[in-house]
């Protein structure tokens, strides 16, 4: 193995060098996150003395208690959870149905529907918000709970369709053929075959939806700004300016509450995130 011999010392040196450079980049990337977490665990006095470091014997959870004790933030957290759960459940259900219809049933017009679903990538909420605002205004839904949830009822499950339909088409068609030849009903095939096969795809969809709904501040800002009770966590955090450094602890506690769920999910399912992202990229 000439190749093995060629490697060795020069290679090890390059690896160490690469490791150091990458470690520096990783530290730069992770530092702001560390800072927010550390600040949220410090009393103001401790923060002033030691703004960057972390003294483990002086960690406190007072900031969290205060933040969660205030009705506003607790309410916003609950709103965010409701909206996110609704968004994820609806999107996953509609993704599964549409992927099954387009991938398995293959009705006349399914190709066209698939194409439309892909092209939705081009439009963002910021471009179509005025007509949607006018519509919900006309329906007298602005500043109600409905306007926070409805977008997911009438949202196009683009990612689910693209990933799901493509995935189903790659399944050997004999599986479906056999089921239908034996007279299985469409409903049963969907539940006992495709829903199971689609599970990994639906997980990707769920995670991507969770991330985007949980983070979204634009639509709540447009639609429920006038009703404080309906503010979600991101909407609340963007309206909150840390007036002076004495508020930093609580501010960072709020930010951590908002960030933690996503980071935890990401750490467990980073593979799904990367998969969903590259699929989204292919669509665009």
């Amino acid at each position: 193995m000439a190749l093995r011999q060629y490697k060795k010392s020069a290679d090890i040196l390059t690896k160490i060098f690469l490791g150091i450079v990458l470690a520096a980049i990783a530290v730069t990337v992770l530092f702001p996150l560390y800072y927010v977490l550390a600040t949220s665990l410090k009393a103001y006095g401790e923060y002033v003395l030691n703004p960057l470091g972390l003294n483990f014997s002086k960690l406190i959870f007072k900031n969290y208690a205060e933040v969660l004790g205030s009705k506003n933030l607790l309410g916003a957290t609950l709103n965010s959870i409701t909206v996110t759960v609704t968004g994820v459940v609806l999107t996953v259900v509609f993704s599964a149905l549409a992927a099954f219809a387009i991938g398995v049933v293959q009705f006349r017009g399914s190709g066209f529907l698939y194409f439309i679903a892909i092209s939705t990538m081009f439009f963002t909420g910021e471009m179509t918000y005025v007509p949607m605002y006018l519509l919900y205004n006309k329906l007298k839904l602005l500043n109600t709970y409905g306007v926070l949830l409805l977008p997911y009822l009438v949202g196009i499950p683009g990612l689910g369709i693209v990933l799901g339909a493509n995935f189903i088409r790659k399944i050997p068609k004999e599986i479906h053929e056999a089921a239908f030849l034996e007279g299985a009903k469409l409903r049963n095939v969907f539940v006992s075959i495709d829903l199971r096969l689609l599970l990994p795809i639906l997980s990707v969809v769920a995670i991507m939806t969770f991330q985007s709904v949980w983070s979204d501040f634009f639509w709540p800002m447009i639609s429920v700004m006038g009703n404080r009770k309906l503010h979600t966590l991101p909407l609340m955090m963007i309206g909150f300016k840390a007036a002076d450094a004495s508020m930093y602890g609580q501010y960072c506690a709020g930010l951590t509450i908002m960030t933690l769920p996503i980071v935890v999910v990401y750490c467990f399912f980073s593979k799904y995130f990367l998969q969903g992202m590259s699929a989204g990229a292919v669509k665009g």
């Binding site: 219809a101 387009i102 049933v105 006349r108 529907l113 179509t128 949607m132 196009i156």
Partner: peptide
């Protein structure tokens, strides 16, 4: 097949009409 297909993807149809065709 066609009928069932459209029924299954009726949410997508409504969504496309309401969040894409209508705004544009």
């Amino acid at each position: 097949r066609n009928l069932k297909g459209w029924v299954l993807s009726s949410q997508v149809v409504v969504a496309v009409l309401l969040t894409m065709v209508y705004p544009i």
